[in-house]
């Protein structure tokens, strides 16, 4: 066979494989939108569930998820960014740095349900925060740390090394240099990473199963020590545990969850592309 014919066949196989990855995405999203949009209404988004979740809306689940991810980022962003600063600006190539890197890789790899167990053991039981938004947010925060550290570090590494030299040569201290001559130029990248981690946290179910999630709680949480409903857990419940729920309610819930996650991803992409355009160094 001619080599160019071989190449044509090979490229076709690669193309078909790619199609088999992309088509399911189109199918999943198409199915959700097609069946879900009818179920979405102002009432659905803003009212309490009724009748064992068969009627009414998903308002408390949305609020619970917003509380959870907002609180988690309050913990994970400062620690994540500072850890990235340590790794990129202070750390030298030694054993400790290698251990930190290894730890981050492993935090990223720990199973989400194991995070749930950990949150249950440490925050719920040992620290006596109970099954609460606080316990869930702390669990999610640790889970999200690797994403924030990696994105922030990459962003810091993209700031030219010369900025640091210039700044130091002007007599600025090391911290002043980082604070004023490096960090401001890394902010968009850090923000992108933070939003992506938020999007991920919003969709996580396993880590909140035992730490925060309430099965059916048709009222809003009053404090961070309260249990709360959460959107992904709610979807799990209504699609497996409760019979006789209108299919469109399930689809609509899935659509809201995917919608939240995608909106945040699109935000992140916009920030990233604006950063690329603005970059002049």
């Amino acid at each position: 066979m001619r080599t160019t014919t071989k190449q044509k066949i090979a490229f076709s196989v690669l193309f078909l494989s790619t199609l088999m990855v992309i088509l399911p995405v189109v199918f999943v999203l198409g199915t959700i939108i097609k069946n879900g949009w009818q179920g979405i209404s102002w009432e659905f988004l803003t009212s309490m569930p009724r009748d064992g979740m068969r009627q009414g809306g998903i308002y408390p689940a949305i609020v619970g998820t917003v509380y959870l991810v907002s609180l988690s980022i309050v913990f994970s962003l400062p620690i994540g960014v500072m850890a990235a600063i340590y790794l990129n600006e202070y750390a030298r190539d030694n054993l400790l740095t290698r251990l930190i890197r290894l730890a981050i890789v492993n935090l990223a790899g720990v199973s989400s349900v194991v995070y749930g167990l950990f949150g249950l053991a440490l925050f719920v039981t040992f620290m006596k925060f109970g099954v609460s938004i606080l316990s869930g947010a702390l669990t999610l925060a640790i889970m999200n740390l690797p994403v924030i550290i990696t994105a922030s570090r990459e962003s810091l590494a993209n700031v030219p090394y010369q900025f640091r030299e210039v700044s130091l040569s002007l007599g600025l201290s090391r911290w002043q240099t980082i604070r004023h001559s490096v960090l401001p130029f890394a902010i968009p990248g850090i923000l992108t990473g933070a939003i992506l981690s938020l999007a991920r946290a919003a969709g996580e179910t396993a880590p909140i199963l035992f730490t925060v999630a309430a099965f059916y709680l048709p009222k809003l949480p009053a404090s961070i020590f309260d249990q709360a409903m959460a959107l992904p857990y709610h979807l799990y419940i209504i699609s497996t545990q409760i019979p006789n729920i209108a299919v469109k309610t399930r689809y609509a819930t899935a659509m809201v969850l995917v919608g939240i996650s995608f909106t945040m991803n699109i935000f992140a992409v916009i920030i990233r592309s604006r950063l690329r355009k603005k970059k002049k160094w």
Binding site: P160, Q162, F163, E165, V166, L168, S169, L170, G171, L172, S173, S181, F185, K280, W281
Partner: peptide, 20 residues
Amino acid sequence: SPEILRKNVGMIFALPQVLP
């Protein structure tokens, strides 16, 4: 201290590195 030294001993680098 390196800060005081560098304030008194300024430096111009090979490539002009203005800050953005």
